[in-house]
């Protein structure tokens, strides 16, 4: 067994605007071992990015606030660290890359400057050594003529090359964990594959864990060991990627997998192919948050909120009908009622 690297426990994050409080993340838990990768999937607004940014405490405050839970990284609670200590973790032990490489690099500084800045923040090296390391990093992420590229500005790079630069920056201090928030969504399809392959390759070479946030279940399938499915700020299903693909337990996950198969090209739209829309997070939700959209909802689903439970070893679900047998029964009920049906 490898050592447990990250442990997120019952994370709660709220956004306040005026008198409205939006519970963007409501009791998310998961853990991650060294060299392991976990995928976070879910519809837009389900709290994937907020969960990920909370780990480095980068939630903008105000309006956001982490109101509960713990995040242990190598045994230390990141949420209780001093500002100074968390800064030493950022970009050094845990790095993050974002969705849109055209906005996440600073347009007015040279790429070399932005890369060396990262290195010099965490490592006590001379300018010359930092430059050497920076060039090495650019080479590592597959940027041709790295020495020349050091002196260029982000707008002189293509989208894929910019994301490579972001990866180089993120990995420049050999982090143990890389958080990638939809790293390929803004890129061309062909470039997406290149970036994913690069990340997989680097993970193997540099020995790190990855949190991969994505809309694209195919990406999870290809790059992750395990995954969590988020809905309305909660985890509704989690487990090994294989187990979930073979035996998805939550009706929401079924929907995701179905829509992925039917509309494989446009993954962003595919997720919203489940009819209806997620609940408003600024109200207290009674019962299961997915009940309104669930074709198999029963009376109990509107009454009590299902807890995350583990009907199968290592495979958890938050549904009143946890096992496959229970679900089959319920499905039949749903068809007998004739009230709802799946297309």
């Amino acid at each position: 067994m490898s050592q447990q690297l990250l442990r997120v426990k019952d994370l709660q994050v709220e956004f306040k605007s005026g008198s409205i409080t939006n519970k963007a993340v409501n009791g998310v838990s998961f853990d991650l071992d060294a060299n392991e990768s976990i995928g976070i999937v879910g519809e837009s607004g389900s709290g994937k990015s907020v969960t990920a940014t909370s780990i480095l405490r980068l939630i903008p405050n105000p309006p956001g606030k982490i109101t509960g839970g713990d995040i242990y990284f190598k045994g230390n609670n990141l949420l209780e660290m001093s500002n100074n200590d968390i800064r030493k973790v950022r970009g050094n032990e845990i790095s993050m890359i974002f969705q849109d490489p055209s906005t996440s690099l600073n347009p007015v500084f040279k790429v070399g400057n932005q890369l060396m800045e990262s290195i010099r923040t965490h490592q006590n090296v001379s300018k010359k050594e930092a430059k050497k390391k920076a060039i090495e990093m650019l080479e590592l992420v597959g940027i041709p003529a790295p020495e020349k590229r050091m002196n260029m500005y982000p707008h002189e790079f293509s989208g894929g090359m910019r994301q490579r630069v972001m990866i180089a920056i993120a990995l420049s201090c050999n982090p143990e964990l890389l958080i990638a928030d939809e790293p390929t969504t803004a890129l061309d399809v062909t470039v997406q594959a290149q970036i994913l392959n690069l990340m997989k390759d680097l993970q193997a070479r540099l020995q790190m864990s990855i949190i991969m946030i994505t809309h694209d279940l195919g990406v999870v399938w290809e790059t992750c060991d395990k995954m969590i499915v988020m809905y309305a700020g909660r985890v509704v299903e989690s487990g090994e990627v294989k187990a979930i693909y073979q035996n998805p337990l939550h009706p929401y996950t079924w929907g995701l997998l179905d829509s992925q198969i039917t509309e494989s090209q446009e993954s962003t739209e595919a997720l919203s192919a489940i009819p209806g829309s997620p609940p408003d997070l600024s109200y207290e939700i009674k019962g299961c948050p997915f009940a309104d959209r669930c074709p198999y909802a029963q009376a109990i689903c509107y009454e009590t909120t299902p807890e995350l439970a583990e009907p199968y070893q290592g495979h958890a679900v938050a549904c009143h009908f946890q096992t496959t047998e229970q679900q089959l029964e319920r499905r039949e009920d749903a068809y007998v009622d004739g009230s709802t049906s799946r297309s």
Binding site: L56, L58, R87, R90, G91, N92, S95, M96, F98, I169
Partner: peptide
């Protein structure tokens, strides 16, 4: 202040 590159700068651990 609310641009992505500022978030990147923070995520790099800058003061």
């Amino acid at each position: 202040i609310s641009q992505d590159y500022v978030k990147t700068a923070r995520s790099k651990g800058l003061k």
